[in-house]
Design a protein around this nucleic acid. Structure first.
Lengths: 331, 331
DNA sequence: ATGAAAGCGCTAACAG
DNA sequence: CTGTTAGCGCTTTCAT
């Protein structure tokens, strides 16, 4: 079967421990011996068994990743970023999709905890209590959520919302609707809160249409409430929902942006391809993925000496065709 | 730190092996003892170390998955299917994204091989030789590709193309363009071949515009060639590309489906949301994911006794608004 | 600079 | 039914 370290040792005429050293810390072993071992290893196609190594070193070289829903285009981008960075660092990654089921998340963490050095939880939906509880099982880094003193990488939700409101204000909008995402979502709460503050400061009115599934269908469902609210602009929790709104508005013969302006969040690949192209708050998704890995590494290596590891990445409003000057108010 | 099997043994006043047995094969141990062990385990929050278990049993309880590009909406659906089925079977899954780099794939397989019981390779781009070579490292199941006698789950590409051509023929189309995807892609070759056969049989003409990146941008780039070819219909390798074609046609003021009909493949979530909604060959993506795991399990358990494990899933043309009756030919 | 021995956490004979 | 023994593949003292 597969060659073990003993096979290599035998082939090179040394002991297993020498092989181990030769393949790892180069300095502690005679160059000639090292060469011999290296060749034997190559010849036999030797690949160390990481599980066995992990058993003794306590380091697995693996990393866990949990996302709520891979079908939401927001997450694949993050996963790609994480993948890429993990691969550079020679880490393998376990992926689990919770299917937006908050109750399932702790189980997923626990299932993986023993096999990884740490995990990245992307937009976890589970309760704070659960989060704190599972944080004892392994090293955690949160993405898109902030809880207690847990290491976290967030995106500047508030800044994004402020930019959106400033943009709409410049276009003369006064009444704006908010189409909310999952109630359990931290970023949903953050965005809503920021919106409240920003609209109040701008002397604008914010109509909350409630919480909807963070998908195309959710936006479709919300669109009629938006129309009924008599607003001239709407901001949706994410692009998928914004696209749903767009589609429903078109179906009802309501012109975008002439009658209603629409703003999304995420800048998923397809938002630029929509017709009209969607104005949206762009989030640095792949960068967030990469940096979350870096954050995890720093936590893993520096121990718990410094301040809580946190980082916030900037967001950027992309103005496209779905927003325009507000129509004149009715008499 | 974390409780080991010895801790549980001590707490329950039995030997580690009894704990092992009590927690696994229920029959071989005294019910009373078993109860005691179970309680001790619960109390200590014991979770077996799967890596250690795998070391001795040879089964890791892990499964590998490699996809070319998670940013292509086709793959997340498959990954979700695989995830779901794997979880049911209590398997954890390693995910790697090769970023459409055929040369990187063998390395990814080898990196994971030792830590998994088997792997699913989704639309692998690597050469047949590489594929055969890595198939020695671990149990493989191919999705969306067929090579040698390797276990494979495929989708009925030919059937899908036949349905598309029959549909276009019914709509009076005679000249049809093909917008190809990655040259290395097996399904790309399959679809093209099927198209050749089907058009020939129908007395239609097929114009091949070449190979493009399997993304929105690829479709945009191909669209002008489609127009220049003077066809009344176009079939794209995938929906992303079809959407790109759609967008470029609109930009050029060419009406769809009035002047040109457009057909995609995959039925990604957004194809139904496009305007006009995209006619496409739907592939059972999540089902393919689930069944690929089942296939892997059957190969793993049944050994290599029976015929090569293969399965082909049916495809289904979804007729939507992007296809219509061909415009009358020019005099 | 290298080898021998011990052991990571677990399961699988083998006794009893 | 249960404990003892051995060992999966690897790294790491501790000697030499």
């Amino acid at each position: 079967m597969a060659a073990t370290i003993r096979d290599v040792a035998r082939a090179a005429g040394v002991s297993p421990s020498t092989v181990s050293r030769a393949l790892a810390s180069s300095e502690l072993v005679n160059p000639a011996t090292r060469e011999r071992v290296q060749q034997a290893a190559d010849r036999l196609g030797y690949r160390p068994n990481r599980a066995a190594r992990g058993l003794i070193t306590g380091r697995t070289g693996n990393l866990g990743l949990i996302v709520p829903d891979l079908a939401n285009p927001f997450f694949p981008s993050i996963v790609k970023g994480i993948q890429a960075r993990a691969r550079q660092l020679d880490y393998a990654v376990f992926l689990a999709d919770s299917d937006e089921d908050a109750a399932a998340e702790p189980g997923l963490v626990r299932a993986l905890a023993k096999q990884v050095d740490g995990m990245v939880l992307c937009s976890p939906r589970m309760t704070e209590a659960d989060l704190l509880a599972v944080s004892a099982e392994t090293t955690l880094v949160l993405v898109n959520r902030r809880v207690g003193a847990l290491p976290a990488l967030t995106l500047d939700n508030a800044g994004g919302m402020r930019q959106a409101i400033a943009h709409l204000q410049a276009l003369q909008h006064v009444r704006v609707a908010w189409v909310g995402g999952p109630r359990d979502s931290w970023s949903n709460r953050e965005r809503r809160r920021a919106l409240r503050t920003a609209t109040a400061a701008a002397g604008m009115e914010l109509i909350d249409t409630g919480n909807f599934a963070p998908q195309y269908e959710g936006g479709v469902a919300a669109a009629d409430l938006v129309v009924a609210a008599g607003v001239t602009a709407v901001i949706a929790y994410n692009d998928l929902m914004a696209l749903g709104v767009l589609s429903r508005l078109r179906a009802r013969g309501i012109a975008v942006p002439d009658q209603i302006s629409v703003v999304g969040t995420d800048d998923i690949p397809l938002s630029g391809m929509a017709n009209p192209a969607l104005t949206t708050v762009a989030l640095p998704k792949e960068a967030a993925g990469r940096q979350s890995v870096d954050l995890l590494m720093s936590v893993l290596h520096e121990g718990d000496d410094t301040a809580p590891a946190r980082r916030e990445l900037p967001t950027q409003l992309l103005v496209r065709d779905s927003t325009g000057v507000a129509p004149p108010a009715h008499p």
